[in-house]
Nucleic acid binder design. Structure first.
Lengths: 180, 180
DNA sequence: ACTGCTTATACAACGGATTGCGCAGGCACA
DNA sequence: TGTGCCTGCGCAATCCGTTGTATAAGCAGT
């Protein structure tokens, strides 16, 4: 139960709309904590009721109006309390990995195809993270060092995954050759 | 929705009780797909109703009786169908990482303490995986190559995390020194 | 003109997942 | 003797999360 805290962390530096937050969850933080916009809007509603965040209504033309949320003192206090408590253990849910574990039953061609797609995606993400990291390295204010760490995690993660993918490819291609 | 498939994958090689599965979810596969015993028992019940698995009742003395589950042909067919379909995207939920992202607010000492604990845990896990991998390398039957890949993923993942942890430590210690 | 993407918010329904509780006996340690 | 941990199974309540649907307007491409 701490989508709320992830949201509060993001609101620490900037005022943002639900939509803004959804985009951030799809990128940097998304590697480590994911949420859909419905969840985010719901949670923002609750956080607002509990006075952890406040928002101001911003009319726009051309685009729909938006609500810009900012963290309150109460929200910041809650964040600090949470930071002090030990974190919940990390959870992962990677269906492709489960597939590889059960790989003996699968046909290697299909898995190889899927592997290629995933490699492609991960490479793109890696490039994004690296670009963002370079941006951050130029400007160095306040907690940019911590944001940089977030990106470093993403980078190391993608690299590790890609290295693993090459090992998987070898095994799959080998299985393929032995079948024919 | 595929805890069911993770279970079927595990039952591919061996007959197992709910308790056995729970332990496996806590270890090797657990890195990539986690589930509590309640979930597992529930899912085993459903899988049994749908004839994807069958079980035999094994009385024990000293210990409570157990149910040893095995996969059926229907279960194997369902697994193969699932393996053909594209996998759901990987999801991660790492609270400690969120903490680091919001690190500017936290006091570095507490985070450093937590970091040490996590490093300890990860190192232990790494040692376990490496030991298991060495075991598997000696004996090489059927799908042991795929099991080996599972372990390799675990190993690469821990290594990447530990490398990242060192970067985090540097930043945290630096923040600490600038405060005093 | 039509399709699809982007910005923006939100409700409703369902199913998946966690948390809490309960039972049951054995073994180890203080 | 008490405490806590391990083996084993399971129900109930609640909460989290996903999917589907809705509205609304602009902009880009075919």
């Amino acid at each position: 139960m701490s989508l709320r805290h992830a949201i509060l962390v993001l609101l620490q530096d900037e005022e943002a709309s639900g939509y803004d937050l959804a985009r951030e969850f799809a990128n940097s933080i998304g590697l480590v904590w994911n949420a859909t916009h419905q969840q985010i809007y719901l949670e923002l509603g609750k956080l607002n009721e509990q006075n952890m965040v406040h928002y101001r209504h911003v009319p726009q033309d051309g685009k729909p109006d938006k609500k810009l949320y900012r963290i309150t003192d109460e929200g910041r206090q809650e964040l600090v309390r949470w930071l002090r408590r030990p974190a919940a253990p990390a959870r992962v849910r990677d269906a492709f990995m489960v597939k590889v574990a059960g790989g003996a039953l699968a046909d290697p061609e299909t898995l190889l195809g899927e592997l290629d797609q995933l490699v492609q995606q991960r490479k793109e993400r890696l490039a994004n993270f690296e670009a963002e990291a370079r941006k951050l390295e130029r400007q160095s204010e306040g907690n940019s060092r911590f944001q940089h760490l977030t990106l470093r995690r993403g980078i190391l993660d993608q690299e590790a995954w890609l290295a693993w993918a090459e090992e998987v490819r070898e095994v799959l291609e080998d299985t393929l050759n032995h079948q024919h």
